[in-house]
Amino acid sequence: MANLPPARLAVPTPADSLLPDAATHLWAQDTAQALLAESVPAIAQPRKPGDWWLKLSAKTQSGSVVPHYVVMTPDGKARAEGDGQPVDMALWSSGDPATVNAAAVQEGPQIAQLLTGIQADMMQQDPHSLMHRAAHIYFAGVTGAPGDGNISLARAFYVALPDNTNSVQTTPKGADFTVRTSVKITNGPAGTTGHPQQHIEIVWHVLAADGKEAGAATQIHDIAAHSLDHEWGEVAAAASEEAAGGVRTIVTNYSGREHTPLPDKASNPKK
C-alpha cells in the first residue's frame, strides 16, 4: 500500500490484550511486522504527537478470544476498526508465540485495507487530489539506447502517455511523478541459424514526487544483432505504447486514485 494517510503508524503495546506482559509486547511487534509486509510504515512504539496509531485489544466471546483493532487519528478519534479471527482462549492466555503471531499475520491485510480506504476517502474530499485531476508526469527522457533510440523512444512515449487521467510535461516543476528510461543492450547467443542476437532491456522507472520509486515497467526482448544501431522506427512506437500502459497502471496503483473510499463514521474521541 502506498501514500498512506500517516507518515507512520504507531503500534503501542496494548493495555487490554488478555495476554501476559511479554506476549503483549510481542503482539504489538508482530502486528507492526505484519503491516510492514503489507507496505504499511508501521512501528511498534508508543504513539507520538501527530501519529496515526493502532489501538489493539482483545475480548472473550463464546469461549474464544477475539483480537480487536482500531485505527486512531492523531487527535484520538477512532477512524475504522475490525475484529480478527477467534483464537483458542488457553493458547492466547498463555501467550503462545505462534498463536500471537498467527493473529498478527491474519490482521495485517485487513488493517492495510482499512488504511487504503481511509486514504481514498481523504483523496475524495481533497479537490486537488488525483481523484479529481490528471496526474502531472515529468518525462526525463531516455538514456543508453543505440542509434536514434533515445530520441525515437522519447518522442513516441510523449505522444503515447497522455489520456484523461495523465498529462506529460518536460519540466519537473509541479510533477506528481517522474519517468526515467534506461536502455541496455548486451550480446546474446549466436542463434539456431548462426545469426547473432542481442538482448535488449528497456526499463521505465516511475518515481513519486518524494523521489521514491513507485514502480517500473520493464521490457525484455532478443533482437537480431545490431538491428537497432541506426533507426528504431516502428519498434520505438510499439515499445512506447506498451510502456505507456504500464506507467499509467503504476501511477494509478501507487496514487490510490481508483481505490474505494471508506466513509468517515462519526465517533467519540478515544484515548
Score class of each variant (00 low, 15 high):
G63C: 05
I137S: 08
P189V: 07
S167I: 04
G141Q: 01
V251L: 04
V159Y: 08
K59H: 06
A140T: 06
F177H: 11
D83T: 08
V87D: 09
H195D: 08
T143F: 05
H195G: 07
T181A: 08
K173A: 06
G211E: 04
P86T: 06
A104W: 11
A134T: 01
T73L: 03
A103Q: 01
G147A: 06
G215M: 10
I202M: 05
S227M: 10
A22E: 14
V87M: 12
A15P: 06
L207H: 15
N164K: 11
T181M: 00
P269A: 02
G245D: 10
D21C: 05
D16P: 07
D88H: 13
V203F: 01
Q119M: 12
P74C: 01
E107M: 15
M72K: 11
V159G: 03
T252G: 08
S39Y: 15
K55C: 07
K184D: 07
E258I: 10
W232Q: 00
F139G: 07
A134N: 03
G144P: 03
V159L: 05
T249D: 14
G233K: 09
D51W: 09
L19R: 11
P97V: 02
A217K: 09
L56Q: 04
R180N: 14
H128Y: 11
A214P: 04
V247I: 10
